[in-house]
Structure formats: structure tokens, C-alpha cells
């Protein structure tokens, strides 16, 4: 089943901030159409890992490849053009623009590039796909919290990503919103998208992820099927919190 070459693979990826090793020799693959959960306690290096993949940060050591081609040294814009798209742990929208223009940013630039009416149509379609079809004309300041997250997701989807990196996309949602959020990501999964999901919400991890990689203090401590990983004693110990000094 995993004979096909992975969409994304990390080998020995390490990031040091001065004396702190935020990510330490990470190895993992993401297969096509897979939703991979990247989990671990706060400060374990999940966001840093996404920053390394998306080119926001340059690794201190190791290799990151997209479909077998190294992208380790590329700047963020070139990685985005090759089809890696990300959301931010703290939502980042374009404040001076309308909702539709925010999504259009993904449609115009990014992996597949469009312009003019084609870009508008595509942006509108992506906005509809996250349930915001009628909100395109609003300013982003007028949106509720979950809707800002939806716009950010639509912007990513509009760029036709090969890999989608979602950093705690479900964090901060109330219970009703959480349900809607999980349903939305399940749809991405059903569409066959390749996703790395950094998440704390256990229900979401159980119902959405094919596999999980668990990090603690920058290191991978477990990898495998969700239920198997979540019952691993070392993972439980990490989550109980005696590890991340």
C-alpha cells in the first residue's frame, strides 16, 4: 500500500535556536491522500516543524523532499509555488481586503496560478466550499472567529495545494463550531487531500487522522496508527507532562 513514493518526506530534520534544539532529527513521510496527525505537548516543536516544511524557517540540518525533490533550501515562496500551503497557528488574514480578495490571493498565486475572471470564479468556489459563499464582500474584521479560520483555509485550498499544513486549525472553537470544523476537515479528507494536521483535540485526531507522529521536546517519540500511538505508554507520559522542561 505504501509502495508509492511519499508526497512529503523529512529526513533528520533539525532546527536549533541558539542553544535550544526545537526540532531534533525528525524523520517521517506523508503519503498521497493521507491525513497525518502531528501531535505532542505545547512547545514540543510542532509549529517549528511546519515552519521548516513551509520554508518560514531554514533547517539547521536534514532534508525535506516534495515528491522526491529536495526543497530544504528553497525560500517560502518557491515552496508555496510547488504546492505546499499552510495556515498559521494565529490566523493571518489580509485586513485591508475583502473576504473574497483574501481567498483570491491563493487563487492568483500559489501552486496553480490564475488571473481575471478565472481567479474570481475559483476563489468564489473555494469560499463556497468552506461555507462562506455569501460573505465574499465583507471585510475580514466583520467575521466571527471560526469564519476567519474558514477564510484562511479557503485561501489555502484556492492555491490547489499538494500538501496542506494545518496548525491547530480547530483550537479556540466552541463545541458547536468544533463540530462544524471537524466536518469541514473530514470533507477535505474525503476529497483525497494530503494533510498534516497539528492538533490538540483528541476527538478530532481520532476521527480524522490515518496515522500520527508524536513529538516531545523536539524529538519523534512515536509513529503509527492512531489508537496504537495514543495507547503507547511513552506518549501518555509525555502528555501527562513530565517531559517538556
Amino acid at each position: 500500500m505504501r509502495a508509492v513514493s511519499p508526497v512529503l518526506s523529512l529526513r533528520g530534520v533539525t532546527k536549533r535556536f541558539g542553544g535550544l534544539v526545537a526540532v531534533n532529527g525528525m524523520d517521517f513521510d506523508v503519503a498521497e491522500h493521507e491525513v497525518l496527525g502531528l501531535i505532542g505537548p505545547n512547545g514540543s516543536g510542532k509549529s517549528t516543524t511546519l515552519n521548516l516544511i513551509s520554508g518560514a524557517l531554514m533547517p539547521t540540518a536534514g532534508t525535506i523532499s516534495l515528491r522526491g525533490t529536495p526543497i530544504t533550501e528553497l525560500p517560502a515562496q518557491d515552496i508555496a509555488r510547488r504546492g505546499v500551503s499552510r495556515t498559521f497557528q494565529l490566523v493571518r488574514l489580509l485586513p485591508s481586503m475583502t473576504v473574497l480578495e483574501n481567498v483570491k490571493a491563493g487563487a492568483v498565486f500559489g501552486h496553480r496560478r490564475r488571473w481575471g475572471a478565472e481567479a474570481d470564479t475559483h476563489a468564489q468556489a473555494m469560499l463556497e466550499s468552506v461555507g462562506l459563499g455569501g460573505r465574499g464582500h465583507l471585510r475580514v474584521g466583520q467575521l466571527t472567529y471560526i469564519d476567519t479560520k474558514r477564510v484562511e483555509l479557503a485561501r489555502c485550498l484556492a492555491s490547489d495545494p499538494k500538501v496542506l499544513l494545518l496548525d491547530e486549525w480547530l483550537a479556540g472553537l466552541n463545541p458547536t463550531e468544533l463540530e462544524e470544523g471537524i466536518a469541514l476537515i473530514r470533507r477535505l479528507r474525503d476529497e483525497g487531500r494530503t494533510v498534516i494536521l497539528v492538533e490538540h483535540v483528541m476527538d478530532a485526531i481520532r476521527s480524522l487522522c490515518d496515522r500520527c507522529v508524536v513529538m516531545a521536546s523536539g524529538t519523534k517519540i512515536a509513529e503509527g496508527g492512531v489508537s496504537e500511538v495514543l495507547s503507547d505508554p511513552e506518549v501518555i507520559r509525555a502528555y501527562l507532562g513530565d517531559d517538556d522542561a
Partner: peptide, 13 residues
């Protein structure tokens, strides 16, 4: 886009 958020701009390609 750059004027609004340069990091978003870069990550949009």
C-alpha cells in the same frame, strides 16, 4: 498583499 502581511504573501507564493 505584501502591504497587508508580507509573511502571508510569501507563503502564498
Amino acid at each position: 498583499i505584501i502591504g497587508d502581511d508580507e509573511e502571508v504573501a510569501r507563503h502564498s507564493g
